[in-house]
Nucleic acid binder design. Structure first.
Lengths: 140, 140
DNA sequence: CTTATTGCAAAACATTTGCAGTAAG
DNA sequence: CTTACTGCAAATGTTTTGCAATAAG
């Protein structure tokens, strides 16, 4: 069902993701939104995030073995997760690199039997500066 | 804790994945294994799959918003999921394509602020022949 | 008024874990 | 014998869903 009504909950959810900027999870959105409307329910946040992603106002970033993260930036770009803290970062294409803005271009590089390739999901991973410092302090 | 004992459950789990070949989920492994040992517990299957993947005897394929799939093929290669049925397929590199055997090479094509890139996860998606036929039959 | 949307509590999934009992070495 | 491993049941974490009440248009 497409979006048909403007509710304060919906506006708050969209606002939260846009204000937080840092690829929040549903939990983080709940926490943020409840500062303005403590009664807002988790289901409402989930439902609104789903709707806003479907309508193209937000972008969903699925992270294996973790909660989905939500991006306010909807132009095509890549992401990376910290393997320690799970924080999600934006990643930019380098000039002259092999990747293009549209990840589905990678489909041209491969072939599959029994399945028509349509899209490609790419997620980088690594260690963020904060967690790297902690690891160094703890002795690798 | 590394593998130290050879149990029949462990052997059955490894056998199941190798016999099934089709990137089974834990559920599929349970089902298969229970034909030989109906009492085997789901936890045991999970624990053994975890162990066998850590030891490099099997490969885990995380699928966003779905159960993990397990591969008996452990040489580096890519995978694709059907967006309808969730079935996982092997994908082969084309000659002259932009992808290399090692997905982490893609790290060289991008840059991130605040995070040191280490690895890259790539998962293709599309529509399998069976589901494509069903879609055509149903109109669209 | 109509019905999209909400809040709540419960269910759905995938997976892990605590614990007492079993068995591999 | 020792303790890794198993089976069970319960817990975890994330997300969805049924339903009656609310509110946007």
């Amino acid at each position: 069902m497409p979006i048909q009504r403007n509710t304060i909950q919906r506006a708050l959810v969209l606002d939260a993701v846009r204000s937080l900027k840092n690829h929040p999870t549903t939990d983080m959105v709940c926490e943020y939104v409840r500062r303005y409307n403590p009664a807002i329910s988790r289901s409402t946040v989930y439902r609104n995030l789903n709707l806003l992603c479907e309508e193209g106002h937000l972008l969903r970033i699925p992270v294996p073995n973790a909660a989905d993260h939500i991006d306010h930036r909807i132009d095509p770009h890549y992401h990376a997760v910290c393997r320690k803290c799970g924080h999600v970062f934006d990643v930019e294409l380098k000039e002259g690199g092999t990747l293009t803005e549209d990840p589905s271009c990678l489909c041209d590089s491969v072939s599959a039997k029994g399945l028509k390739l349509e899209d490609c999901f790419v997620l980088f991973s690594g260690i963020c500066d904060g967690c790297a410092a902690n690891e160094a302090e703890a002795g690798e």
